[in-house]
Computed example of a mutant assay.
Amino acid sequence: MTIHAGAPMPAELRHWMRAKQDPARAVPCSHCGAAAHKPCRLRTTGRILTEPHPQRRSDWAKASACCPDCQVTPEVPCHDEGRARLTVHARRYQEAEATAA
């Protein structure tokens, strides 16, 4: 029996199928190493998670939105008085969700 890879999926169909996913899945997960558009996994057991890791959500917000609190552009980490933060400000999450909708 021959296994065929099949025809490539049209971009419109791929977008429609991914519309139900969490928008944070658009970036790779720096915590578990999951690729973009793939679900996060537990590093110890490999169990698939229904929600992305908090670090992935932070990476997504940093990549897609400007921060109203510290006035930085996308891809620039948030800061508190010049000191870089490990996560982004809460308002940056709100901005990212507004742009994703």
Rank of each mutant, 00 (worst) to 15 (best):
C66S: 11
T87S: 12
V72H: 01
A101M: 00
D69L: 01
V88P: 02
M1I: 13
T44F: 07
E97P: 04
W16N: 03
E95A: 09
H31M: 06
K38C: 07
A26W: 08
K62T: 08
W16P: 00
P77K: 07
R92N: 08
A11Q: 04
P52I: 05
H53I: 06
C67Y: 09
R85K: 15
T2D: 14
H15V: 07
K38F: 05
H37W: 14
H15E: 14
Q55A: 13
S30F: 06
A100V: 11
P8M: 09
R57S: 01
A11I: 08
A5G: 10
P74I: 12
L86N: 03
E12L: 15
G33V: 00
L49V: 04
E97T: 00
W60P: 03
R47I: 05
G82W: 00
I3C: 01
K38S: 05
W16A: 10
C67K: 08
C70S: 02
R47Q: 14
H15Q: 13
R41C: 09
M17C: 11
T73K: 14
C67W: 03
A26R: 08
R14A: 13
P68F: 04
L13R: 13
P10W: 01
E81V: 10
E51N: 09
T87H: 13
P39V: 05
E12Y: 13
I3W: 07
I3P: 01
Q21M: 12
T50I: 07
P8W: 09
E81T: 12
A19S: 13
D69W: 00
C70K: 02
D69P: 00
L42A: 02
C32W: 14
C70P: 04
E81G: 03
C40I: 02
Q55G: 02
A63P: 05
M1R: 15
E12Q: 15
M1Q: 15
A36T: 02
L13F: 08
C29I: 07
R91W: 09
C29H: 05
Q71K: 01
K38N: 02
W16E: 05
M1N: 15
R41W: 03
R91L: 13
R43E: 08
P28L: 11
R43S: 05
P10H: 03
P74M: 12
E75F: 04
D69T: 03
Y93H: 15
C78A: 00
V76R: 05
E51R: 10
A34C: 09
L42N: 07
C29M: 11
D22P: 05
S30P: 14
G82Q: 01
A65Y: 08
R85G: 01
H89F: 04
D59Y: 06
A19L: 09
H53F: 09
L49K: 10
A84E: 06
R57A: 01
D80M: 12
H4F: 15
I48A: 15
A24I: 02
M17Q: 11
K38Q: 10
P68N: 07
D22S: 10
H15T: 13
A61G: 07
C66E: 12
A100Y: 03
K38T: 04
P28C: 11
R41Q: 13
A11S: 04
K38H: 09
S58A: 15
M9V: 11
R83T: 14
